[in-house]
């Protein structure tokens, strides 16, 4: 464990909690893409199956349970509890165009052709594009609530910090996972446009960002 990975995990946790609290407190999921949240729940489910088979550390197990729990709680709030506030007309990204290619790629490019490994690879590839429905929805509505932009900032920051963690681990431990690194670079690049808006608009104090 190193500081970059720890801050990355805490940034990820912050994003997940910010979103869950935002929906719970405002009793509304307006502006939130339910499709992205379903994809994240799928990412955690396929990646953390090893919860059932192995124990790495208390930290590892606790965080995985929190991530899965919050992901499903968020999906529940969006599609069940506060369904009336779900903006289905703007959450129209065709997720099958993500899941099918990612599923195919996971079978073609992986470290080991075992079920657990293929599911892990699928989850890594899926996570790199899971935010697209959310970014697409914001571009369609033309705006995002401030709290949603903080959610996206911490979510984007987490994988950027993981990239630094992988540099650190390569240099100090010789650890190197090409699949996670390439997917992590793609994932972080997808946020670049948003990061630029977040920083520039954030300074002007405007309460909404308007992606191009």
């Amino acid at each position: 464990m190193n500081i970059f990975r720890l801050t990355g995990d805490l940034s990820h946790l912050a994003a997940i909690i910010i979103l869950l609290l935002k929906i719970w407190k405002t009793r509304s999921c307006a502006g939130i893409s339910g499709k992205s949240q379903v994809l994240f729940a799928l990412v955690f489910t396929t990646r953390y199956l090893d919860l059932l088979t192995s124990f790495i550390s208390l930290y590892n197990t606790t965080m995985k349970i929190i991530y899965i729990g919050c992901a499903y709680a968020t999906v529940y709030l969006i599609y069940m509890k506060f369904k009336a506030t779900y903006d289905g007309n703007h959450d129209t990204f065709r997720v099958e165009f993500l899941v099918v290619p990612v599923g195919g790629l996971a079978f073609l490019v992986n470290h080991d052709f075992s079920p657990l490994e293929i599911l892990w690879t699928f989850s890594i590839y899926l996570e790199s594009v899971a935010i697209l429905p959310q970014l697409f929805m914001i571009s369609k509505t033309g705006e995002a609530e401030t709290i949603t932009t903080h959610y996206l900032f911490f979510l984007g920051l987490y994988r950027a910090l993981y990239l630094i963690n992988w540099i650190w681990r390569f240099y100090f431990e010789g650890f190197f996972d090409m699949i996670a690194i390439v997917a992590g670079v793609v994932q972080t690049i997808l946020y670049c446009d948003f990061f630029y808006l977040y920083v520039t608009k954030g300074e002007s104090g405007s309460n909404k960002i308007n992606p191009a």
């Binding site: 990820h12 088979t53 790495i56 995985k64 080991d112 075992s114 490994e117 892990w120 996670a180």
Partner: peptide, 10 residues
């Protein structure tokens, strides 16, 4: 290749 030794990250 042991799965857990490879994937000890979240």
């Amino acid at each position: 290749r042991e799965f857990t030794s490879l994937h000890d990250e979240l």
